[in-house]
Design a protein around this nucleic acid. Structure first.
Lengths: 125, 125
DNA sequence: CCGTATCCTCCTTGATACTG
DNA sequence: CAGTATCAAGGAGGATACGG
């Protein structure tokens, strides 16, 4: 029952959980372009609901990956930006992207092979 | 509705999905020690159910990350091992671990700060 | 403008019993 | 030994209406 003492404490798992989260990665990617407001992020990240956007931003802020600045203006204005730590994570995400772009071909080929057992490529007779 | 054209096609997302998966990472980590049988993995990965183990192994196999070898013996014997591609992914996972170990302190400190607003560290008066 | 509150649905996972 | 089949439960996420 108590199962995975591993999953909870392990630093890698905590980071993986964040990095494995779709919206978090997208938000960090967007903020790579510079500080942005809530509404800007909402518009640019297609398909995200206010609930998920807020939830994602709070999580990233809590982990010290992004900063949140409230301007005392009317109408209200809130900017989010990457922290140094967030920029460092961005590097990591980009390393991941590089790996993905390099190897996705192999993965997809493997999938095709797995899904079509016994089929030879480009051999008709 | 159709939302994220992004999420589905993007190579990064596909790899992230795999890497973000707890059991997949654990299995890959176990196989870093060399080829192993199903039962060995089941025993060493605490808390995993046969269903999830099989499901995870199939997924990794389909993506070309691990190989599966069946020996015609009695009792049955099946070995799993990392492929070259799987070893490459292992490198990536280790890079992630390194980042995590390096920065987890910052993240945890940020969390404490976030969860205890206004509290100053080590200042009692 | 920047969110929060609510409801609801699906999907993943877990537990467990069983088979080739 | 190496899985498969089945069922139930929980939580993550989407849609949406409303508040400061």
């Amino acid at each position: 029952m108590e199962t995975t003492a591993y999953a909870k404490d392990c630093p890698s798992r905590q980071i993986l959980d964040r990095i494995g989260d779709t919206w978090s990665v997208l938000v960090v990617g967007m903020l790579a372009d510079g500080p942005q407001r809530y509404s800007s992020l909402a518009k640019r990240i297609e398909g995200i609901s206010p609930k998920m956007l807020t939830q994602t931003l709070r999580g990233l802020e809590r982990d010290g990956l992004i900063g949140r600045t409230v301007y005392a203006e009317v109408p209200p204005r809130v900017d989010y930006e990457l922290t140094i730590l967030g920029l460092s994570l961005l590097d990591l995400v980009r390393a991941l992207s590089r790996w993905a772009e390099t190897h996705i071909g192999d993965v997809q080929a493997a999938r095709v092979a797995y899904d079509n057992p016994g089929v030879r490529v480009s051999v008709s007779s």
